[in-house]
């Protein structure tokens, strides 16, 4: 196999989304510095587009013939719509709706990602619902939505309280620092365990599950979500639907 073959094959694999991350990054670096290679990529991309257009054109041609036959039959004189026709059209629409809704559901299920599941379910903790007062400075910054300050201030606290840990974890999720959120929420749970307390216990379970999703660790999020879903008295029970659980199960596999 010569060099040109290999290079073109790589470009095709790149366009087909079949290249591994490292190879893709190497190729992208080459493309940025080699205009001839970039031009070949554009031609190949257009070739693929042309094939898709050609396929679609052929498909439209097939349906066109079918529809011309249907219209020709419909040209026969009929006055109004018979009940049978109304039923046929209604059944057809119902079938289409069923297919579309079913396909949309399957599409959602199979294309769900950890990040997507996180985004669909994450709403920042509303401070007015906290049980117990949070420290003033952190609370004020959190209420203002100044999450960077919450994160910065938290790092200067030698022995954070449970409330501080919880607010910090939420701020970390807001700033996309899932590992920091996981560490704070895990510390919160450990502290509760050691002291035999229940501060922010259920909140921490829910937000820890979301933090794991954000961190692409659906397998760790799943047991927490299962627990919340199974416990009808859990504060966050209503937020963990069976559908959310199914998606998390698929991602955890």
């Amino acid at each position: 196999m010569n060099n040109n073959y290999t290079q073109t094959e790589q470009l095709i694999q790149y366009l087909d989304g079949e290249l591994e991350t490292a190879a893709r990054q190497d190729l992208e670096a080459k493309l940025a510095s080699e205009p001839i290679l970039a031009a070949e990529l554009e031609s190949l991309s257009l070739a693929q587009e042309a094939v898709r257009s050609y396929g679609l054109k052929s498909r439209i041609g097939d349906i066109h013939r079918e529809m011309m036959n249907e219209f020709a039959v419909d040209e026969a004189p009929v006055v109004g719509m018979t009940p049978a026709r109304i039923f046929r059209y209604t059944a057809r629409i119902a079938a289409i709706l069923l297919v579309v809704v079913g396909a949309a559901v399957l599409f959602q299920y199979y294309t769900a990602s950890n990040e997507q599941l996180f985004r669909d379910n994450f709403t920042p903790f509303a401070l007015h619902t906290t049980r117990g007062a949070a420290p003033e400075a952190l609370e004020q910054s959190y209420q203002k939505g100044d999450y960077a300050t919450v994160v910065g201030n938290y790092k200067n606290i030698a022995s954070p309280s449970q409330a501080e840990r919880f607010l910090y974890a939420n701020a970390a999720l807001q700033t996309s620092d899932a590992p920091a959120a996981i560490a704070a929420l895990t510390a919160l749970q450990e502290a509760n365990k050691t002291a035999g307390t229940h501060a922010y216990e259920e909140d921490a379970e829910y937000y820890l599950a979301l933090a794991y999703l954000k961190n692409n660790e659906a397998a760790k999020a799943l047991p927490l979500l299962e627990k919340i879903h199974a416990d009808t008295g859990h504060t966050y029970h209503d937020k963990v639907s069976g559908w959310m659980l199914r998606k998390a199960e698929r991602l955890a596999k």
Binding site: R59, I63, M67, V99, V100, A103, F107
Partner: peptide
């Protein structure tokens, strides 16, 4: 619904038929 059928590839052929019925 027609746009969804095209975008999601849920029933592209049926979408084309609908376009024929509404516009040809």
């Amino acid at each position: 619904l027609i746009l969804q059928m095209i975008r999601t590839q849920a029933a592209p052929d049926e979408a084309i038929r609908q376009l024929y019925r509404m516009q040809f």
